[in-house]
């Protein structure tokens, strides 16, 4: 049985490994939730990479219907062909457009299907996929054929919790909540992404980063992806670690903070706090 482990590029905690392996072993979907920027989407990419499977990425939007993942009947094209007298019009199968799930079910090699941000879709969306994900098959009404998965794909579903998912859907999934990594894990993650980054710079950067996360009242706390972006910027600018060092635990405004704070109100709040802290120290 293929098993998933942390790779050199993606540091997974033990509980995440167990959850992914359970989903692989029982061929059930894995539902992943967590703060934005903690690597939910990247997880699917890494699972596919480490198992050597192909990844089929189905990105969900508010207008996505479950049917889009299975197939669509392009009625307009057929109508046009019909009016132009195209001979293709006699076979309805010419106008069936395959969706991502069909593609995954038909694939002779094992694949990983990522259903990204499932909560963005309509409330009924997960319900409409119950049977398809459970049995890994569906029926094409127009051509009266049943598509059955040749090999059950590994399905990874991510959610940002904007909508609650129905119980019947949840029953069929394994669930994992990605917690925000602690400092130790964070160091490993940074190490994995930028192996040649200077140790002292990482230390100072993490100090600043965790300090910012602890500022009360931030609307959007910076997460792993923000940290990685920021470090990249620091590397590009070639800043010395001294630029990040705060004096006696005081709050400083870090250089290039735009990568960490994405919200105007947060920036204001932070500037005010830094100002107060500077004044208190003076």
């Amino acid at each position: 049985m293929a098993a998933f482990r942390s790779t050199e590029r993606y540091i997974a905690s033990r509980d995440l490994e167990v959850a992914v392996n359970a989903a692989i072993a029982l061929q059930r979907p894995l539902l992943v939730k967590g703060e934005p920027g903690t690597g939910k989407t990247v997880l699917a990419h890494e699972v596919a990479r480490s198992l050597g499977y192909r990844l089929i990425d189905w990105h969900i939007k508010s207008t996505t219907k479950a049917q889009h993942g299975l197939y669509e009947y392009d009625a307009v094209a057929r109508l046009r062909d019909g009016q132009l007298g195209d001979p293709r019009v006699h076979d309805i199968a010419n106008y069936i457009v395959r969706g991502k799930l069909w593609e995954a079910f038909e694939s002779p090699d094992p694949v990983v299907v990522l259903i990204d941000e499932v909560d963005k879709a309509d409330i009924e969306f997960p319900n409409d996929l119950l049977l398809e994900l459970d049995r890994m098959q569906f029926h094409v009404y127009e051509t009266r054929q049943t598509v059955v998965a040749k090999r059950r794909p590994i399905v990874i579903i991510t959610s940002n919790n904007e909508k609650e998912l129905p119980d019947a859907f949840l029953r069929r999934c394994f669930f994992h909540y990605i917690r925000f990594p602690d400092r130790e894990t964070m160091e490993r993650i940074v190490q994995a992404h930028y192996p040649d980054l200077r140790k002292d710079l990482v230390r100072e950067a993490l100090n600043v980063f965790f300090q910012i996360r602890e500022v009360p009242g931030l609307k959007k706390k910076p997460a792993t992806s923000e940290l990685l972006d920021w470090l990249k910027l620091l590397m590009v600018e070639d800043l010395p670690p001294e630029a990040l060092r705060a004096k006696e635990g005081k709050l400083i405004i870090p250089p290039l903070y735009g990568a960490l704070l994405k919200n105007e109100q947060d920036v204001h709040l932070f500037e005010r706090l830094a100002f107060l802290s500077r004044r208190a120290g003076a």
Partner: peptide, 12 residues
């Protein structure tokens, strides 16, 4: 513990 959590809990 991790396994039972992934299998039994569906809501953080």
């Amino acid at each position: 513990y991790y396994l039972s959590r992934a299998a039994l809990v569906k809501d953080e």
